[in-house]
């Protein structure tokens, strides 16, 4: 991504936060603004929403008034980087979706194997050793030592 792409991304991200601020104003308006002698439940969230909208507007103004960016001035990000992020996140979503069905060990183990073996293209030995070693360590630490009731699959772990 070049510098101008980064600037536009930054502006879009700020707009999302501004929209969140506007949403907070609307939701806070439904709560009591003032009770007998003191601010009510909606007072602070309302003004925080207002502050967010104003600051995001100021940020956008500042960003548009700044000198135009030179599209060639920034080194491009690793081309495979964005694909890697998508794979990591999709893998995480799949891992969480499976967690209660197949249990912590299988779900997290498969996710680790996917990341190391598929996304990072490491050797089979590395993939197996790190995946199995990590889930075994986490299972012992959290389940056995700290007594955390991790979700279990039909096979009891």
């Amino acid at each position: 991504m070049n510098a101008s792409g980064t600037v536009w991304g930054e502006r879009c991200f700020a707009v999302v936060i501004g929209l969140f601020g506007a949403f907070w104003i609307i939701q806070a308006s439904k709560l009591p603004y003032w009770s007998d002698f003191a601010p009510g439940s909606g007072f602070l969230p309302f003004w925080l929403g207002v502050a967010l909208v104003i600051m995001v507007a100021a940020f956008l103004l500042q960003s548009f008034r700044a000198a135009p960016v030179d599209a060639q001035s920034e080194a491009p990000v690793d081309a495979g980087g964005r694909g890697r992020i998508v794979q990591i996140m999709l893998g995480l979503i799949a891992c969480l979706a499976l967690l209660e069905w197949v249990g912590f060990v299988v779900s997290v183990g498969l996710y680790l194997a996917f990341l190391i073996g598929w996304v990072e293209r490491r050797t089979l030995v590395e993939t197996a050793a790190v995946s199995l070693g990590t889930v075994a360590f986490l299972w012992l630490l959290f389940k056995k030592w700290l007594g955390v009731p991790f979700p279990e699959g039909p096979w009891g772990f």
Partner: peptide, 21 residues
């Protein structure tokens, strides 16, 4: 880092779940 970050993510999953199950 290719080996390190999957381990960090697994620790994040276990850690967040353990807080309130």
């Amino acid at each position: 880092y290719a080996i390190l970050y999957p381990v960090i993510l697994a620790l994040c999953i276990a850690g967040v779940y353990s807080q309130s199950n």
